[in-house]
Amino acid sequence: MSPATIWAWFTDPAQWSGADGIPNRLAEHLAYTAITLLIGLVIAIPLGAWVGHTGRLRWLITGANAMRAVPSLGLLFAVSMFVGPLIQSDLAFVIPSIVVLVLLAVPPLLSGVYAGIESVDPAARDAARGMGMTGWQVLTRVELPCALPLSLSGLRSATLQVIATATIAASVSLGGLGRYLIDGLASRDYVQMVCGSILVAALALVADLLLAAVERYAVSPGISGRSVGVARSRSSRTGEGSRPDPSGATRSTSPASTAT
């Protein structure tokens, strides 16, 4: 197989239209990823913020992190076999996959938000309360903005993990870019597999770079400027203990906060 065959595959007009075409597969993949991350954020932000702010139920974070040891492929098959038969429509493939993807996305998101809030300078938190901020104001005006770098690190981890696992989910009949890999494997169409892989890798790279750009834009320069180094050494130090590194997902550690 040469670059020419790969080029020929990509330039074949048949690849660019219809349900099997690249635009549709890419759109599906993006849709799964977006839905999963949206659900994951809806779960993880309030939960992580609440645990970080109140310091209660910290075992939730530990538990979520322990879940990362479950092999995603196994989880995918187990949930599909359990949930799939209960659903009598086309969604029979989609729902179990989304459930698994959410289960995989939540731990990095959750520990990102939690670790971010936990890393807020206690003096800043004390000052915020002392000057008369309500608990909600402390959370929204001080803790969450300060937690943004680690939260976004978590989001990058989760995004990569979801993009990768959505590929695998083609083996339980989910659409998306994974179809090229799984279908190619079944029909021994090696060119299709390689081209699919290139697409997935490219998507993952682009998504990660986009999120890195968002991180640069969204995080206050007061935090990203000099304190990035502080946050980093702090998280590596907590890594010594039993708690895994907040940004270290089992599948994907994002390159985390890009070096400035």
Partner: peptide, 22 residues
């Protein structure tokens, strides 16, 4: 309690400035 605290200046050892604000 919020009203009480807003009516008092509070200064602490390490200043406790908000790092994300100018």
């Amino acid at each position: 309690v919020a009203e009480l605290r807003r009516g008092m200046g509070y200064v602490i050892q390490h200043a406790g400035l908000f790092p994300h604000r100018t």
